[in-house]
């Protein structure tokens, strides 16, 4: 797979602005988490989670371009931003619940992980249902954008949950 072939389709300005925007989101979420929880380990995971979205999007797009003969298009940037939005909402829920829970006297990390599981499941079912319903009536190119977005966001939000559960269980 030749990544450079696809990178050449973008100008360095386009690549740089996207990197800056992703870094702003990643740093902002990490900063908010660190400020509210004072816990470095999960904060670092939040940063990695935000960075994972463009990596996964790039990987899936590369697979589509290489193996399914799909032509690169500016419309595919929708996958990245829609997934970033969904991931940010998922992380916000974890952050707010965790920061509220650690202030309580009877702090129980299970409350956070159980709540985040329900929230993630709800979010997953929402995007799954809407994507499937809409996909029935749109053309193949749009289905491609919607299903890749569903795939990227689902992987990231479930990874958020799994990593948060693993990291927070010994608190």
């Amino acid at each position: 797979m030749e990544i450079t072939k696809y990178l050449e389709l973008m100008t360095s300005y386009q690549i740089n602005t996207t990197i800056v925007a992703i870094l702003i989101i990643a740093i902002l979420m990490t900063g908010l988490f660190l400020y509210h929880t004072n816990d470095i380990k999960p904060s670092a995971i939040i940063f990695l989670s935000a960075i994972l979205v463009p990596i996964l999007t790039g990987l899936f797009l590369l697979i589509l371009y290489e193996f399914f003969n799909i032509q690169p298009s500016e419309k595919h940037t929708l996958i990245l931003w829609t997934s970033l939005f969904i991931n940010t909402i998922n992380l916000s829920m974890l952050l707010e619940r965790y920061s509220k829970e650690i202030l309580k006297k009877n702090f129980d990390i299970d409350h956070v992980t159980k709540y985040h599981f329900t929230a993630t499941l709800n979010l997953f079912i929402t995007i799954l249902l809407i994507t499937f319903a809409v996909s029935v009536f749109v053309q193949m190119d749009m289905i491609l954008i919607l299903s890749t977005t569903l795939l990227v966001s689902s992987i990231v939000i479930w990874l958020n949950h799994l990593v948060a559960r693993l990291l927070l269980k010994d608190k």
């Binding site: 940037t77 909402i89 916000s92």
Partner: peptide, 15 residues
């Protein structure tokens, strides 16, 4: 966070 991501879409987004 939603407002921030949307604002970033406006400022840094392309196409």
């Amino acid at each position: 966070t939603s407002v921030i991501v949307s604002a970033l879409m406006l400022i840094f987004g392309t196409g």
